[in-house]
């Protein structure tokens, strides 16, 4: 095990791996964009208008506006997660695409960096798609919501890094269900996507404070609503830490899996 613990090597050799995934995506771009966009957009619009009509205001703004920030974050999270779990696992385990690449002069570190950057790129599109709806509906001005773009990248990185750990551990596709039921779904419900975290009992708030999506939304919501986020660096650090630690652990576990 110890011989797999060395730090990640970062090299531009990841680019052809990214390009490969991009080329596949381009072939399926329209269904892929629709799939990524439709689900979170319908949640946001359906709940925003439907439930929002029954509520006076949530967190000081119309419910649809409240939901917008959460939806940008969770849509980005979902997109990055799905990419590294299902698509990444297909490439690593089912199609043996990684194996083919490793016979060329690339290392596993290059391949995984390519996957990390690719999942981040793809989730950027998902986040941007929701952001475009936010702009189109006039829920927020262009101005400071532009800060959401780097934030979306950071969220994508965070969840791609975490998801790669699951990819490294998984024996098959079914395994990912644990991650969704035990990690992703609780996060959607505890981190303030649909309602403010302070509505939760204290002990759940305490759990929520540790979850990366909470940090993402703590940054995104003020940006959508025209305010300034609190404790900016702490939140950024939390997202970087989750993504970075996830990526490193995933790399060590995948080295052990494929290079033993």
């Amino acid at each position: 095990m110890t011989r797999f613990l060395y730090l990640p090597t970062l090299s531009l050799r990841f680019i052809p791996v990214w390009q490969r995934n991009f080329l596949v995506w381009r072939k399926l771009a329209i269904p892929s964009i629709l799939g990524n966009l439709a689900d979170p957009a319908f949640y946001m619009l359906g709940l925003g208008y439907g439930l929002g009509g029954l509520l006076p205001q949530v967190g000081g703004v119309p419910y649809l506006t409240f939901l917008a920030a959460g939806t940008v974050c969770y849509s980005t999270m979902n997109s990055a997660t799905f990419e590294v779990l299902y698509s990444g696992f297909s490439r690593m385990h089912v199609q043996k695409t990684w194996e083919a690449i490793l016979n060329a002069p690339l290392t596993l570190d290059d391949v995984m960096l390519g996957e990390l950057v690719w999942a981040t790129s793809k989730s950027l599109l998902s986040g941007l798609a929701i952001l475009a709806i936010v702009w189109a509906l006039g829920l927020a001005g262009l101005g400071q919501t532009l800060w959401l773009i780097p934030l979306i990248i950071l969220i994508g990185f965070c969840f791609a890094g975490m998801g790669l750990v699951m990819n490294a551990l998984s024996p098959n596709y079914d395994f990912f269900m644990y991650y969704f039921t035990l990690v992703i779904t609780p996060m959607v419900l505890l981190c303030g996507v649909f309602y403010p975290v302070d509505q939760l009992p204290a002990w759940l708030q305490a759990v929520s404070a540790w979850l990366p999506l909470t940090h993402a939304i703590a940054l995104a919501r003020p940006l959508v609503q025209g305010g300034v986020p609190q404790q900016i660096f702490a939140h950024i650090l939390a997202l970087l830490a989750y993504g970075g630690a996830g990526y490193y652990v995933a790399l060590v576990l995948t080295r052990r899996r494929l290079l033993k």
């Binding site: 052809p16 791996v17 390009q19 490969r20 080329l23 596949v24 072939k27 199609q95 695409t97 083919a100 690449i101 060329a104 002069p105 690339l106």
Partner: peptide, 17 residues
């Protein structure tokens, strides 16, 4: 790579070098 044609497979693989 099952997502690509024969030609694309060669192109993509060449890029790894």
């Amino acid at each position: 790579d099952p997502d690509f044609s024969a030609r694309e497979n060669l192109l993509i693989y060449g890029r790894y070098f």
